[in-house]
């Protein structure tokens, strides 16, 4: 705790020094960022939207994309994990796709989609692949003995999936959800580049980048970082609650 605190203090001292001796007139020091933070939080930005409003709108968009990413990633992952031949067939499509960054998808999504779907699509790009890959990994790690055991009790394929494969893959799936939510959240700036609306944390950053007011840009960056941290922590907490049966295996 003490170490963590001192590293934060050292970080701010460095920042202050760099701002002080930097030749650029646009690099703000921590104090002006704090001032900008308070202004945006209480008064709002040039269009009158407060920081909380920006954050809520961005969260809403990310959660929508996350929901779609989960609703597609888990079932497709289960299917591909269970059917290795199908997985082999689609691997040449999936593998290169997952290395294309969200920003590269912007022009296509403008051409293909409208309105809210553009946000959802760009965030989905970030969420889908981690969820998909971890779900497949979880399914593959299901113990053959447990499947045979269930068969000797007369389980059919549907029961094997719902009662053995899914619960046994759940720790990996949750890990995929956590990573996916993180990556999806990181896509928010890219997603909000294309939406015309003036709200959202990504929008806030872009707006003030154009105005060359870097202090507000940093306020947006820090807010994105802190909310990402909080989301990650929330899912970790949920995992800990759900997987008490696994606690000692991990230790």
């Amino acid at each position: 705790m003490l170490y963590a605190l001192s590293s934060v203090i050292i970080f701010f001292i460095f920042w202050e020094l760099i701002a002080l001796y930097s030749p650029s007139p646009y690099l703000p020091d921590p104090y002006s960022v704090l001032r900008a933070f308070i202004t945006i939080l209480t008064v709002g930005d040039v269009d009158g939207y407060t920081l909380t409003w920006h954050a809520v709108v961005s969260l809403e968009r990310v959660l929508l994309g996350f929901a779609v990413g989960t609703a597609t990633g888990i079932p497709i992952g289960m299917l591909l994990g269970i059917k290795p031949t199908l997985k082999g067939a689609v691997t040449p499509i999936i593998e290169p796709l997952r290395f294309i960054p969200p920003i590269a998808w912007i022009p296509l999504s403008i051409v293909l989609l409208i309105g809210l779907w553009r946000y959802i699509f760009l965030i989905w790009i970030g969420v889908f692949f981690p969820v998909l890959l971890d779900t497949i990994a979880g399914v593959k790690r299901t113990s053959i003995t447990l499947i045979q055991m269930a068969r000797t009790f007369g389980a059919d394929n549907k029961k094997i999936i719902t009662k053995i494969v899914f619960p046994s893959s759940l720790p990996e799936i949750m890990n995929g959800l956590r990573v996916g939510l993180g990556v999806g959240w990181m896509c928010i700036v890219a997603a909000e580049m294309i939406g015309g609306e003036p709200v959202g944390l990504g929008r806030l950053i872009l707006k003030y980048a154009n105005l060359l007011q870097i202090d507000v840009v940093i306020v947006g960056m820090i807010t994105i970082g802190l909310i990402g941290l909080a989301l990650n922590y929330l899912i970790l907490l949920l995992e800990k609650r759900m997987f008490r049966w696994r606690v000692e295996i991990r230790a």
């Binding site: 003995t145 447990l146 045979q148 055991m149 269930a150 000797t152 009790f153 007369g154 389980a155 029961k159 009662k163 053995i164 619960p167 046994s168 759940l170 997987f243 049966w245 696994r246 295996i249």
Partner: peptide, 24 residues
Amino acid sequence: VIFQEDSLLPWRTVLGNVKFGLEL
């Protein structure tokens, strides 16, 4: 059927494991 390997469901309690066959 009783297997040589551990065939209990690690995510279920003792009670939940014994219920498993009954559910199926």
